[in-house]
C-alpha cells in the first residue's frame, strides 16, 4: 500500500533517466578523456577542465553569455509586464491580441533565424536601410556591436511575448477586490501598481525570470543563422562555443566545457532564485 506512490512515479523516473541521466553520464565520461576521431580514448583526469578554464576563448564566451542574458532579462521582463498591463482585460479584443502575441512563439527557431537574416542583410535588409535614413551605418557582418545588439533584438522580439502571457495570466488572477480597496484607500495609480499588482505578480514573474534566464543561456540557432558567431567571436555564445568544439571532434574538451556550462547555468539559476526569494515568507511560530 505504502509503496504505491513510487509505483506511479516509476515510468517518469525511467524516462527521465533515459533522457537526461544516461546522456549526462556519457558526457562526464567524455570530459575525462582525450578523444580524437578514430583513436582510442585516453583517460586524462581533470586535464580537460583545466584546459577549458585556461582558455581565453571560453572565458570570453562565458562573459559574453552573461552580459547577453542579463541584458535580455532587463529588457524583456519590464517590457513584458508593461505590455501585459496595456492589454484588454475582457471582450473580443482579448483573443485577437493573444493570437498576435503568440505568433513569434509559434515560429520555429530556424525560420526566425532566416527571416531576421533577411531583415538585417547589409545590402537588401529592412533594418540597415531604415537606419541609413538616420545616417547610421549598420552592418552585422562587420560591426561587433551591431551583431550583438541584433541578436539581443531578435531574442527580445522572440521571447517577450512569453513574459507577456505569463504576466497577463498573473494579472487576470488578481481579484478585483484588491483594486477596489486601493481605490477606496485613495491610492494613486503608481501606488496601486507598486503595492497591489507587483506583489501579486511576484510568483509569476519569478517563474518568467527563471525560464527566460535558462533559455537565454542556451541561445544557439539565432547567432548560428544570423551571424555565424561573428564577426570575430562577437556573437559566439556558450552553446555555440561548445558546439564548435564538438564539431572539431575535440570531444573531451567539448564535454568538459559542457559540464562547466551546465554547472554555471545551475549555479546562476540557484542564485537568481535565492535572490528573488530573499525575505521568503517565513511563517510565524
Amino acid at each position: 500500500m505504502r509503496q504505491r506512490p513510487w509505483l506511479f512515479l516509476l515510468p517518469t523516473l525511467v524516462l527521465m533517466s533515459i533522457s537526461a541521466f544516461i546522456p549526462l553520464m556519457a558526457v562526464i565520461n567524455y570530459s575525462l578523456h582525450t578523444i580524437f576521431a578514430g583513436s582510442t580514448p585516453e583517460f586524462v583526469g581533470l586535464q580537460n577542465y583545466a584546459d577549458v578554464m585556461g582558455d581565453a576563448q571560453f572565458r570570453g564566451a562565458l562573459l559574453r553569455q552573461l552580459t547577453f542574458s542579463l541584458l535580455a532579462l532587463l529588457i524583456e521582463i519590464p517590457l513584458g509586464v508593461g505590455i501585459a498591463l496595456c492589454m484588454p482585460r475582457k471582450g473580443g479584443a482579448v483573443g485577437l491580441s493573444l493570437v498576435l502575441l503568440g505568433i513569434p512563439l509559434l515560429i520555429p527557431y530556424n525560420v526566425v533565424g532566416i527571416v531576421w537574416r533577411l531583415f538585417t542583410q547589409s545590402d537588401i535588409g529592412v533594418i540597415p536601410r531604415f537606419l541609413a535614413v538616420f545616417g547610421y551605418d549598420y552592418n552585422v557582418s562587420l560591426d561587433a556591436t551591431d551583431a550583438f545588439m541584433t541578436i539581443l533584438l531578435v531574442d527580445v522580439w522572440h521571447w517577450t511575448p512569453l513574459v507577456v502571457l505569463l504576466a497577463y495570466a498573473g494579472l487576470q488572477a488578481i481579484p478585483q477586490t484588491f483594486y477596489q480597496a486601493a481605490e477606496v484607500d485613495g491610492a494613486s495609480a503608481w501606488k496601486t501598481f507598486r503595492y497591489v499588482t507587483l506583489p501579486k505578480l511576484r510568483s509569476v514573474l519569478t517563474l518568467g525570470l527563471l525560464i527566460r534566464f535558462m533559455d537565454s543561456f542556451k541561445v544557439y540557432s539565432e547567432p548560428l543563422l544570423l551571424t555565424g558567431g561573428g564577426p570575430g567571436n562577437a556573437t559566439t555564445f556558450m552553446s555555440l562555443f561548445v558546439a564548435r568544439k564538438a564539431e572539431a571532434y575535440e570531444l573531451g574538451y567539448a564535454g568538459a566545457s559542457s559540464i562547466i556550462y551546465l554547472y554555471v547555468v545551475i549555479v546562476m539559476s540557484y542564485i537568481l532564485f535565492q535572490f528573488i526569494n530573499r525575505s521568503p515568507e517565513e511563517r510565524r511560530a
Partner: peptide
C-alpha cells in the same frame, strides 16, 4: 470618484 468619497470598505475576503 471613489477616492474622493472617503468611504471605508471592508470586503468579504480580507484585503
Amino acid at each position: 470618484p471613489t477616492r474622493e468619497r472617503h468611504i471605508a470598505q471592508v470586503f468579504q475576503f480580507p484585503v
